[in-house]
Design a protein around this nucleic acid. Structure first.
Lengths: 335, 335
DNA sequence: CTGAAAGCGCTAACAC
DNA sequence: GTGTTAGCGCTTTCAG
């Protein structure tokens, strides 16, 4: 009933434990006859080397940790798929920790990572507060930031160009002929992409001589319902709006849902552009026009970068940017 | 730069390593003055006991494994949240493995679990094929099935009553006055909930003298797009339908999307009932009438059960059923 | 090519 | 109360 050990295998194959170890690690250094006997014993005993013992020696756990703020968000779910594939490529396991945007939980997951000695951590949890940074540094575990970055610390990161992406979205709306454009954004104080996306919005507007719109913005906090409420505020204050740029697909859905409840047609009367291109963007009615992030690739790349960092001690490019792309579907129309 | 060990702490605190070990495990058995010195050293060195060494001794990893088929599905995402909370309660870490419905990947994740010696596995990956079962058994790791069960093997499971849930959904449609009712289901051969949900559908129909409908069914495989296509087939063959029961919210969205493209009003002309009550059900337009599964609780309960199994060696109830509930929203209407 | 033995960091008897 | 020591299962010199 007990897990078999290298000793059991050695005994059954009539060899020493070193020989067994060798067939597991450098099979060519063992005479064929013995090797076969060992292999047979391994098969018969369903032997699996004990990863604790190995970890003790190698000082590596062959697992990576991932910190995300909200697993019930297709954005992070796509990240996970990318990371998991990269992990398989490199032979890592992945330990996914969902903080639910709870600070204490995040901190305690870092402890877990430290204790379990993960070989690296991908931090995809928005702003890297000093408190998080300090704790992360003290563990001495390599860290890569995903869809976030730090101005103060030199931590490798992979992300998109939020300012440019937002600019593209708003410019598209302008080219469609819209003149009264609003925005549903992320709060500037506890999100990393909030400010740059706002700046992209403002720049596109300004370049087109539409500065009067730059204040037509309301903020929401991640969820559909908040965006619904924010849309209500936005349209109450600015009923003239014919288009709104949303910094998340979920916000776009909230806005469209609000408009629908007010019998305003999308895209008939109001155009809505989202951000992320989640799987849902294509399922919603109407299908969302949106800025596509290379979500899967972002996750994949973060793991690659972390592997590079954990293996070589540093990375070739510190801050990496991946390309975004506007996807035109049904929620936008010419004015 | 190297992680500090129990020896470093002992040296700094001028005590033996056993004393350090004691303050970590049975603090009361150490004199206060020494204890304080040790605590201080621990803090100063940022000491974290090495979990490999501990695992070697305890033969426990304090982590649970979870096998899911599709992380880009809010169903599993909700399961994860429940499990993660339960894991925190019991002091486990959670290792989430997404198989993407790939057999080889699933098998190789079982190897990983074996090697990492997780203390238990929750298998939420639909049908438990003999091949999976064999492999799982050989690892000797405790297993709990989630939203699936096995007729052949006595493995603990937690799930809902699929037949009854489907029955409730269809009965609701009938009570609304619908007489021509179709269904979008899961294939019967590679899904565990496919058959019982179909049976619930058929029973409700039969009890109401509507046997003529029992064949009005098409199958889809998990995704929105498939359901869209299946809806096309269903309505082409049975244009008389005024209601359709879908065994997943995502299917309901696919159906509604199809209907929308054909200018058929939901719920105006056709009522649609979903299944699961995902977070999205409430965001879609129209909001979905659906059978709510206690998703979070299912995940939470599975972890509790697994803990019970791993700790005591068996479970008090082998097959556990949790309650479902019909939630009426906007996608259904009286005929 | 193969075996003996040291040691990774920690816990748990066992002495004192 | 506290220190010494024997392992947990494995890899890796080091001899032979």
């Amino acid at each position: 009933m007990i897990k078999s050990t290298i000793r059991d295998v050695a005994r059954m194959a009539q060899v020493s434990i070193s020989t067994v170890s060798r067939v597991m690690n450098t099979p060519d250094s063992v005479a064929e006859s013995k090797r076969n006997r060992v292999l047979e014993a391994i098969e018969k005993l369903q032997y699996q080397p004990n990863s604790f013992a190995r970890g003790l020696i190698y000082k590596k756990s062959f697992t990576l940790g991932l910190l995300i703020p909200d697993i019930e968000n297709f954005y992070y779910t796509g990240i996970i798929r990318g990371m998991q594939d990269a992990c398989i490529k490199f032979g890592y396991s992945l330990m996914i920790c969902n903080t639910d945007r709870d600070k204490d939980r995040l901190l305690s997951y870092i402890d877990t990572f430290h204790e379990k000695q993960v070989d690296g951590i991908v931090f995809a949890s928005d702003v890297l507060y000093p408190e998080y940074y300090e704790k992360l540094v003290r563990t001495k575990i390599p860290v890569v930031l995903l869809s976030t970055h730090s101005d103060e610390y030199d931590i490798p990161c992979v992300e998109i160009d939020d300012e440019a992406a937002a600019y593209d979205a708003v410019k598209f709306l302008i080219e469609l002929g819209h003149r009264e454009i609003g925005m549903i954004g992320f709060n500037h104080d506890n999100s990393i992409s909030g400010p740059p996306r706002y700046e992209g919005f403002a720049r596109a507007l300004t370049e087109a001589g539409l500065e009067r719109n730059v204040g037509k913005i309301r903020f929401a906090t991640h969820r559909f319902e908040h965006a619904y409420d924010a849309a209500h505020e936005l349209f109450t204050d600015y009923p003239e709006l014919t288009a709104v740029f949303c910094v998340a697909d979920e916000f776009a859905m909230g806005v469209i849902s609000y408009l629908k409840d007010r019998n305003v047609l999308v895209p008939g009367q109001v155009s809505v552009v989202g951000f992320d291109n989640l799987r849902m963007a294509n399922m919603f009615i109407p299908k969302l026009t949106t800025i596509a992030q290379p979500i899967y690739e972002l996750g994949y790349r973060a793991a690659e970068k972390l592997h590079e960092l954990a293996t070589t001690g540093n990375v070739s490019v510190l801050r990496e940017r991946m390309a975004h792309k506007l996807i035109v579907r049904e929620s936008s129309r010419e004015k």
